[in-house]
Design a protein around this nucleic acid. Structure first.
Lengths: 216, 216
DNA sequence: GAGAAATGCGAGCGGTCGCTCGTGTTTGCC
DNA sequence: GGCAAACACGAGCGACCGCTCGCATTTCTC
């Protein structure tokens, strides 16, 4: 292969600092517009306007509308991994259920509150094509983590049931996240508690042991 | 006013049996297309094509695209009320939590399995204008029912917390419904059980009595 | 059977959207 | 300073969508 001279085949164009700044502006604008109207209803002209540039400038940096959402999704997932990534299944398998939920959920909730567009991109059903694949991949990855986590608590659980429980817990958390994001201040805190209570009540009987009476 | 001769101002046009049949065809086609692509992405031409009529014929019976979704929603809510309507808060307030969940949820689940477009219309976030208002109204009505139901079990509960619990339980059920609808056969039954388990685990400590061995 | 009303058709209008292109401006490099 | 590349612009193209309109056909009513 003649890779010796090709530095990065994925980045065929040499960007200036101004270009990188524009890209960030455009992604921020896209996040804002996606949050307000969803992916399909968001027009590229609106994104460009929100970023303060012309439509032509937008297409200087992104080949099409889909690429904007994909890049946004990539950066967000990368950021999520960087910030609170591996803390998902690492050492918290030994924790009691209540504490484990705090350790696992708090970073996820915090991240989603700081980046509400993430939930919009990942959970909205109006994201066609490549964006939907991105969503499906991340969804599968996260759910596998949940499954593994459950497996460490109840290894004897039938695989099908474990999958179902992970799916249910994940769906429950997503629904709860939307409630959390749609409130602020004290209300938000209260809903966070509510979501945790809900997951606790669901998982405690599954995890078994005598955790049901160990809630502090 | 010259209303003496106007029989029904809401139905200014005299429909033939053929027209009523066409309306039903169009609504069925719309339900199918809405389920496949969501409201905004569903084109009126596609609905007409699915119903086997021309675009012009569609607009003989509906003033615009929104009216199709509104009429569909109206008929579905009416059908829901007719079939399993008042059984929601009536006599089941005295039942133990587990049985109450069966009595309340089973008809709702059955209805949504038979009419999957209902969840699409009511929960999808890409329904603008009048359809969204319809959704908000029904959502509020159902949630009020849930609140009342919780109130009969735990009258001493603080109103804000009762609202939060009803909101959470309702969101949980909607998320569960999507899981249920996306599976069939045994899987579907298993997810129904899972959703009920989830709601039970969440509500049992709230309802209190001796349902849960401990809380707080 | 005749007239009126309801039903049915489909080309196409106005508008929006994703995206392009020709052209002008700024920046990095020698 | 000069030149090529990156950046920026915005009018506008093609496609699609919601919806209309003129006209043909079927059905109801008498």
């Amino acid at each position: 292969m003649t890779e010796s001279q090709v530095a990065r085949p994925a980045n065929p164009r040499r960007r200036q600092a101004r270009g990188e700044r524009r890209i960030q502006q455009l992604l921020d604008a896209a996040a804002s517009v996606f949050c307000r109207t969803g992916y399909t209803s968001a027009s590229t002209n609106a994104i460009a306007r929100e970023a303060g540039v012309s439509p032509g400038t937008l297409y200087q940096f992104f080949p099409n509308k889909e690429a904007i959402a994909v890049e946004l999704g990539d950066r967000l997932t990368q950021q999520m991994r960087d910030t609170h990534g591996v803390a998902f299944t690492d050492k918290n398998a030994a924790l009691p259920l209540g504490e484990m939920l705090d350790v696992v959920l708090d970073p996820l909730i915090e991240f989603n509150c700081a980046n509400p567009v993430f939930l919009t991109l990942i959970c909205s059903s109006d994201t066609p094509g490549a964006v939907a694949e991105e969503h499906a991949a991340l969804h599968a990855a996260l759910q596998t983590r949940v499954e593994e986590l459950i497996g460490t608590y109840v290894p004897e659980l039938a695989p099908e049931r474990r999958t179902r429980i992970a799916t249910m817990a994940f769906a429950l958390f997503k629904a709860g996240l939307e409630l959390i994001l749609s409130h602020e201040g004290e209300d938000r805190e209260a809903y966070i508690t509510e979501v945790k209570n809900c997951l606790y009540g669901y998982l405690a009987p599954v995890i078994g042991t005598e955790a049901a009476s160990a809630r502090h």
